[in-house]
Amino acid sequence: MSIKTANARERILLAAKTLFSSQGIRATSVDSVVKSANTHKMTLYKHFCSKEALIVAYLDKHSAEFWAWFVAQIERKAQTPKDQLLAIFDVHAGWLASPDFQAAH
């Protein structure tokens, strides 16, 4: 995959993330993702065979980013396995109280 191709894929995923978060997945059209990503439908369909495939890729990326953040927060708060287990609850409570969580739900 070339750098140009990877950049287009990432721009599409970033546009999808922004639009899905603000408008909802159902309300976001492929046309609006294409326009926001400053690309063409052909490019979107080169990377994602359907809107559903784009949604799956978005959810996969979002999940991976969330879990990387979650684990990093736990490791930052505690060093021992016992303390890390307890830190899960602190990190989870902080996430639930965050404006990002409140806005998304």
Rank of each mutant, 00 (worst) to 15 (best):
I3K: 14
K4A: 01
K4D: 03
K4Q: 09
T5R: 14
A6M: 09
N7C: 03
A8N: 13
A8V: 15
R9N: 03
E10K: 07
I12A: 00
I12H: 01
L14F: 04
L14H: 12
A15C: 01
A15W: 00
A16S: 07
A16W: 00
K17I: 05
L19K: 04
L19Q: 05
F20T: 13
S21A: 06
S21H: 04
S22W: 00
S22D: 06
S22A: 02
G24T: 11
I25Q: 07
I25R: 08
A27V: 12
A27Q: 14
A27P: 13
T28W: 00
V30R: 10
V30N: 07
D31I: 07
D31V: 08
S32E: 09
S32M: 05
V33E: 00
V33I: 06
V33T: 09
V34H: 03
V34Q: 03
K35E: 10
K35N: 10
K35M: 09
S36E: 10
S36V: 04
S36N: 09
A37Y: 00
A37S: 02
N38R: 10
T39H: 03
T39A: 02
H40R: 15
H40N: 11
H40C: 08
H40E: 11
K41R: 13
K41A: 03
M42V: 15
M42Y: 13
M42Q: 15
L44N: 04
Y45N: 06
Y45G: 01
F48E: 07
C49S: 15
K51E: 00
K51H: 03
E52K: 13
E52L: 07
E52A: 12
A53P: 10
L54P: 09
L54A: 05
L54W: 04
L54H: 05
I55R: 06
V56K: 15
V56N: 12
A57P: 11
A57K: 08
Y58M: 05
D60S: 10
D60E: 11
K61C: 08
H62E: 15
H62L: 14
A64D: 07
E65I: 09
F66E: 12
W67P: 15
A68L: 09
W69Q: 14
W69V: 12
W69E: 11
W69S: 13
